[in-house]
Design a protein around this nucleic acid. Structure first.
Lengths: 115, 115
DNA sequence: AAACCATACCTCAGATTCTTATGTATGTAA
DNA sequence: TTACATACATAAGAATCTGAGGTATGGTTT
C-alpha cells in the first residue's frame, strides 16, 4: 500500500471485491486498477500483493490459470465458490468497521462518513 | 481489539481524536469509551493500547500526569501542541484513505461510504 | 474465607501484514 | 545502453496487533 499503514487487512477485501466485479484479473492488473481508481493515491506494492494472492489461493478462495500473452506469462486469478461467499462477508466486516470508526471519530454527526 | 484485524494503524488516530475531545483521559478509560461508543463491537486490548500510548508520548504528541484516585494510580494523557496538530493530520489521512477505499470497493455509487 | 470480577497499570512471545530491496525475464523508447 | 513498462516472485526487517501473563486494590458472590 502507499504511504499510509491504515487499515491493514483491507488488501484482501480489495482483491476479493475487484475479482467479484471483474471475473478474472492478474496481479499487475490489480495494482494498476487500484492506482487508477484512486488517482495514484493508493499504490499496492508487489511485496504486499503477491503474498496476499498466494495466501488467498492457499485458503481456497482464489483459483489460478496461467496464460501466455505476448511472450509474457500472466497468472489470472478468479474467485472460487468459497471466495464468492467470502467477498460478502469481508465487505460487511469492513463496512461495519468503518461504521464503528465513524462512531468513535465523529461523535457529532450521526449519519455517514460522508465525503 | 475485536475479531477483525482491520484496526492496525487507526488506533493512534482513535487515541488522538478522543483526547482532542476530552482534554485528558487515562488508559483504562479509553478502552471503556471505545467499547461504549461501538456498543461492544470494538474492544481495544491493553497489549495494543499501552504500547501505543507510550509511543505517542515518546514522540512528544502526548504528555502524562499521574494521579491518585481511591488508592488507585491513574496515568492521565493529554495532547501536546504537536499532538494537537497531529490529530488534524491523522484525521484527514484516515478520511482520505476511507474515501479511496470507497472508490475501490463501491464503483457504482459515487458519493459517500454511507451508513 | 475463597473465588471472582472490575479497576488500573504493565510486559512479552508470537502472529500478521506491511515496506523496501532484490531477482528474473521480455519488450519498447530515449 | 540506459531506462521504463510489463509481469512474476522472494525475503529481511519494521510496525502493529493478539493473547497470555504479572502486579495491585477493592467490591461482590458463593
Amino acid at each position: 500500500m502507499s504511504n499510509n499503514n491504515l487499515i491493514k487487512g483491507s488488501l484482501q477485501t480489495i482483491i476479493l471485491k475487484l475479482l467479484e466485479e471483474n471475473e478474472r484479473m492478474y496481479g499487475y492488473e490489480i495494482t494498476q486498477r487500484v492506482k487508477e481508481l484512486t488517482e495514484g493515491e493508493i499504490k499496492i506494492t508487489e511485496g504486499a500483493l503477491y503474498p496476499a494472492l498466494h495466501k488467498l489461493e492457499a485458503e481456497g478462495l482464489l483459483s489460478t490459470e496461467i496464460q501466455q500473452v505476448d511472450n509474457r506469462v500472466r497468472k489470472y486469478y478468479s474467485l472460487t465458490k468459497d471466495g464468492q461467499k467470502e467477498v460478502t462477508s469481508k465487505m460487511s466486516e469492513l463496512q461495519g468497521f468503518v461504521e464503528n470508526l465513524q462512531r468513535i471519530l465523529t461523535p457529532d454527526l450521526k449519519p455517514g462518513f460522508n465525503i
